[in-house]
């Protein structure tokens, strides 16, 4: 059961992220929700690579060649973190411009596109 705690954390992060994206009306809280979703997805990928008793997959000054964890998911997660950073930066700059135009960042009031 102890080994399943990272997976439970993944599910908790994804559920919290989806809840924040769908049910919150402050635009910045929606962006926090996407950050949580992305953290959950990245944690899921890294946890898949764990092998029992493994050390970090780096050859420089490594203590031994006994089992190492898989390095491929770590490379995938690096790419994903960069993509998440770019998305968050873009969303935040759009929110800055929305505040400049509308004067508020409540999603219920930013609603000139209707119908």
């Amino acid at each position: 059961m102890l080994w399943n705690i990272p997976y439970i954390a993944v599910v908790a992060l994804i559920v919290l992220g989806l809840y924040a994206c769908m049910f919150k009306s402050n635009l910045v809280k929606i962006i926090i929700g996407t950050s949580l979703l992305e953290a959950g997805a990245n944690l899921f990928l890294i946890t898949l690579g764990y092998r029992k008793g493994g050390i970090a997959p780096i050859f420089t000054n490594a203590p031994s060649t006994e089992s190492m964890v898989l390095p491929v998911p770590q490379a995938l997660v690096l790419t994903s973190i960069v993509i998440g950073l770019a998305v968050t930066a873009l969303l935040l700059s759009i929110v800055v411009m929305i505040y400049r135009h509308y004067g508020t960042i409540d999603a219920k009031k930013v609603r000139r596109l209707r119908g």
Partner: peptide, 30 residues
């Protein structure tokens, strides 16, 4: 400096919300 957009928001929501004073406090606080 943010532009003053609050007047337009109040116009467009005045027809829908019942408690306008609550709205004014909220947008003023933002």
């Amino acid at each position: 400096t943010p532009k003053r957009g609050e007047a337009e928001i109040e116009e467009s929501t005045a027809g829908r919300r019942a408690q306008e004073t609550g709205e004014k406090h909220e947008t003023g606080g933002n």
